[in-house]
């Protein structure tokens, strides 16, 4: 469990990135911080592994204040996945994945074996092990990034817009992969994104942030969609318009779902969804697989 207690962060140039932020992130669940740029979401994420230290307030992991922990040691037990993978360009895939275990003193042979197994876990072929990052596609690089994040078997996995730089098709693939991984591994995932679709797809708990890290609403995707706290949230999630405001209409000899602009959004399927979407708390409309306009 990760707890933020009245955390504020003011940068030396005077910018107040986060102001009096309090939040509890439950263990073994995915919490998504979502907001536009300037909402302080990345700053909040980077506070958890002490890449940024708060100006005031405290952060605890399982009851231990992280300000009492040595940053380097703390970071080595937290998985970190960033946009553009951040892989070391002069090291092979396998060496990148094994980086942190080697730093922690795992014997080289074991570290490499574990790294190979992790390539399987993230769905990469072992033949890529000796490639360099620049020889991989963007999607493959992100998978290596995830494998590296998992290499120390951390309880906590921080993901900073990890799928932001890949094309939509690969992104959808990686999102599904993460859902599968999370159902197997049950990590405490903290995920930062500006994409509300991604937040609803991946999050058990979604935190919508306004500027300065002020929380607009916390809840499951269904709660937020069904009861947006205010106009800001409603407009951010798009519940008041377009493809999320659906109604049933009789067309020809069947009922179809139509959005507020009159576009065909899909049909009601009895008993849930027909194929691979998240087995989680997301009964609402607007799942990307439902057709309609591309996101």
């Amino acid at each position: 469990m990760i707890e933020f207690r009245s955390v504020s962060k003011q940068f030396p140039d005077g910018t107040l990135a986060v102001e009096d932020f309090s939040l509890t992130l439950p263990s073994h669940q995915t919490t998504v911080l979502v907001g536009s740029s300037g909402s302080g979401k990345t700053t909040l994420l980077r506070m958890i592994n002490r890449m940024v230290d708060p100006s005031s307030g405290a952060i605890e992991i399982d009851g231990v204040g992280i300000h009492t922990l040595e940053p380097v040691q703390l970071r080595r037990r937290i998985g970190y996945v960033m946009q553009n993978s951040g892989l070391l360009p002069h090291r092979t895939v396998i060496d990148n994945v094994a980086t942190v275990p080697l730093l922690r003193g795992t014997p080289k042979k074991n570290a490499r074996q574990d790294a190979l197994a992790l390539l399987d876990t993230v769905g990469l072929d072992r033949s890529l092990a000796d490639r360099y990052p620049s020889q991989l596609s963007g999607g493959q690089q992100q998978r290596v990034g995830v494998a590296r994040g998992l290499a120390v078997n951390p309880n906590i996995l921080l993901m900073d817009e990890p799928f932001g730089a890949v094309d939509p098709i690969v992104r959808a693939e990686l999102q599904q992969e993460l859902i599968r991984l999370q159902s197997e591994l049950g990590k405490t995932v903290v995920f930062v994104t500006h994409d509300i679709e991604e937040a609803f797809l991946l999050g058990d708990q979604v935190v919508i942030l306004r500027e300065g890290g002020r929380i607009a609403q916390i809840g499951s995707p269904a709660e937020i969609l069904a009861n947006p706290a205010d106009d800001f949230v409603a407009s951010f999630v798009g519940a008041d318009r377009g493809k999320r405001a659906l109604h049933l209409e009789r067309r020809g000899d069947g009922d179809v779902l139509v959005d507020s602009e009159g576009r065909l959004a899909g049909v009601l399927v009895p008993g849930g969804r027909p194929h691979e979407t998240k087995a989680g708390p997301f009964p609402g409309p607007g799942a990307p697989a439902q057709g309609g306009e591309p996101q």
Binding site: V72, L74, Y80, M82, T99, G149
Partner: peptide, 8 residues
């Protein structure tokens, strides 16, 4: 940044 983030 990423090298530092993973604990170097």
């Amino acid at each position: 940044d990423s090298a530092r983030s993973v604990g170097m």
